[in-house]
């Protein structure tokens, strides 16, 4: 598992950790049932506070990505890689529906929409 924290990233540190872990779980880099580093070990390695890593883990647990068993540690939750991908696709579809509606209000064509997306993607790179 790799976690790279960026000071330039506007998101708070616990959110950065959670995002990266979510991505790695969904993409399958972190496998189901895999044992995750303890919140203390992670905190010390990243040189951040234990409270922050705990917050990240708590959020991931609430969302169902990981499971913490007392005295044993935290594991990637038993959800199939396919299931998670499904969820993300559903979320993207929802967002697309909203964009479609907004585009209609403003009168944006499909090509203009596609170009906007391309510019956005290029900008991120």
């Amino acid at each position: 598992m790799d976690i790279i924290l960026s000071n330039a990233n506007p998101d708070p540190i616990y959110e950065q950790i959670a995002q990266q872990m979510r991505a790695q779980i969904v993409s399958g880099i972190l496998k189901e049932g895999e044992l995750l580093p303890s919140i203390r070990a992670l905190a010390k390695e990243l040189r951040i506070s234990v409270i922050t890593t705990k917050r990240a883990y708590d959020e991931l647990e609430r969302e169902g990505y990981i499971q913490t068993i007392a005295a044993k540690g935290s594991y990637v939750a038993a959800r199939s890689h396919e299931q998670l991908k499904e969820e993300y696709l559903r979320k993207i579809e929802d967002h697309m529906r909203s964009i479609h509606l907004l585009a209609q209000f403003v009168g944006l064509s499909e090509e203009e929409l596609a170009m906007m997306y391309q510019l956005l993607a290029e900008g991120e790179r």
């Binding site: 708070p12 540190i13 616990y14 905190a43 040189r47 951040i48 506070s49 234990v50 409270i51 922050t52």
Partner: peptide
């Protein structure tokens, strides 16, 4: 690099005690 919490002392009094990452946030 090391701390979870930070207390700032000034002229014999505590100015604040905060969780380090939250403080920086």
């Amino acid at each position: 690099k090391l701390c979870d919490y930070v207390t700032f002392l000034e002229e014999g009094c505590i100015r604040f005690t905060e969780e380090k990452d939250e403080l920086l946030e």
